[in-house]
Design a protein around this nucleic acid. Structure first.
Lengths: 122, 122
DNA sequence: TCCTTGCCTAGATGTTTATCGAAGCAAGAC
DNA sequence: GTCTTGCTTCGATAAACATCTAGGCAAGGA
């Protein structure tokens, strides 16, 4: 549960380099980055992510009631966000708290910088 | 094939507003934005997207050989990118050419701006 | 101690997705 | 006209995914 559980996605290896539009991405980097986008590619996870990123930290008990879904389903989505390296979780007493990992967002944002396109595409 | 085919995703409605971290995203907006991230959430599509965005335009005939996949499979992924509003295609004579739609990237990038977080999350 | 609460994991199920081969269609060559 | 080439669509299949219920475990209160 705590951050000792190694994330599946190593953020230092991911999105470390050039924007999508700077040069064709090689297969290895694509395989590292795609899971990050995939994690955000579900409406439930996107809302969870937004709720988490909008505050310094938030308890699962405040996330679950915002959805018409069972607790285990929310837990499943949170696990995917954790494995993608987008959030961190920590148990404090009874509750588990989630926090966004801003460096992941910075890297993803840099990847989408289309102004890096070498030609008229921008 | 041509741009007369309405994109499934209306970019004017999508990602039009505030960054993920600015405030909790409502379900409607999440449903509009998630398909964009989902489209980028596959390694093949991410590489295709990068190849397309790296040049002003590119022919399918230059995209397909870069992958160990059949033509129909590449065509399928390109269709998803088209439906997400991330690329445009145009047939010119024998070949079909693809171009990136930079406004989609600008909007996605703005969404990931974590510096918009209201609190210490950044 | 036992009970309750909060959250996660395990297992099952229906849906979606990635992939292929076959077939179709448009454009150009002959 | 026919043939070839480039790309798409169609139909099928296997893998991945979202969701649920059931069960488990840790923390706190009685």
């Amino acid at each position: 549960m705590s951050k000792q559980e190694l994330p599946v996605v190593d953020l230092n290896a991911v999105a470390c380099c050039s924007p999508i539009a700077a040069r064709p991405m090689d297969a290895d980097q694509a395989a590292l980055v795609a899971p990050l986008f995939k994690a955000l590619g579900d409406p439930v996870r996107l809302r969870l992510m937004s709720m988490i990123a909008s505050v310094p930290e938030i308890c699962v008990c405040d996330l679950t009631p915002a959805f018409d879904l069972s607790g285990p389903t929310i837990s499943h989505h949170l696990k995917l966000l954790r494995e993608a390296g987008l959030v961190d979780s920590e148990r404090r007493g009874t509750w588990v708290w989630y926090r966004a990992k801003p460096e992941a967002f910075r890297k993803l944002g840099a990847l989408l910088d289309i102004s890096a396109a070498p030609a008229a595409a921008a």
